[in-house]
């Protein structure tokens, strides 16, 4: 049994069916890449797995237990979703990286944050940098760290390298590789040809259905 299991999952927004009867099993520690044309339902599929939306029919299980049986915040801490072009909130980088600690009611660990910042080639002094002064690539790196302060069991990445400059893209891809090596299950959605070529387990999606 996989760490994430989707059984006959469909999702409709009003009259429009976006996801059609999807069955999917992702094993623990696996790295799955989903590709497909824009608007085919890739992001919706990730949001369903992240429990940010609920399927119209079918079931999603995590570690053999139905998603609906979990306390939702606890589930999302373990199945963590990183948005395409994420928004950083409040004023500073520190405010953003503090949130995972606030969520778990534990004190802010600057040493841990320092190590993570180093992984994405940013200095500790970056903590006090204002959000409005960051480039797109820096924002994406901070957003990714936000998801990894407390490593989740499953990391969902929604085209996180889209629109990044070459340097930021290389750094983000290296971080993802690092995460994969540390037994975190990664499900990523991408259009990027090099990421598709490097995928160990690739599934294509078309018109809301996974192609076998």
């Amino acid at each position: 049994m996989g760490i994430i299991e989707l059984q006959n999952v469909s999702y409709a927004d009003g009259d429009q069916t976006i996801i059609h009867h999807v069955d999917l099993s992702v094993s623990a520690g696996d790295s799955l890449t989903i590709s497909g044309p824009s608007g085919c339902g890739k992001s919706t599929l990730l949001k369903l797995i992240a429990s940010l939306i609920s399927p119209t029919s079918g079931t999603i299980s995590f570690n053999g237990k139905n998603q609906t049986a979990y306390d939702y915040p606890t589930y999302r801490q373990q199945v963590s979703y990183c948005f395409q072009q994420p928004t950083l909130f409040d004023n500073s980088v520190r405010d953003n990286l503090k949130l995972p600690f606030q969520i778990r009611s534990v004190p802010f660990d600057e040493a841990r944050i320092g190590a993570l910042l180093e992984l994405v080639d940013l200095p500790l002094t970056f903590l006090d940098k204002k959000v409005i002064d960051l480039s797109g690539g820096e924002k994406q790196r901070i957003a990714l760290i936000r998801n990894l302060v407390f490593p989740p069991q499953v990391l969902l990445l929604d085209e996180v390298t889209v629109g990044l400059d070459t340097r930021s893209k290389t750094i983000v891809q290296a971080l993802i590789k690092n995460v994969q090596e540390q037994t975190t299950t990664v499900i990523q959605v991408t259009h990027d040809e090099t990421e598709i070529a490097a995928a160990t387990h690739l599934i294509e999606m078309r018109q809301g259905a996974l192609q076998k």
Binding site: L52, Q77, Y81, F83, T87, F89, R146, N147
Partner: peptide, 18 residues
């Protein structure tokens, strides 16, 4: 206006109040 920010906080596992 801040829909995206709330979604991101929820995705990180924040309860609705936070």
């Amino acid at each position: 206006d801040q829909r995206q920010q709330i979604l991101e906080k929820l995705a990180l596992g924040a309860p609705i109040k936070l």
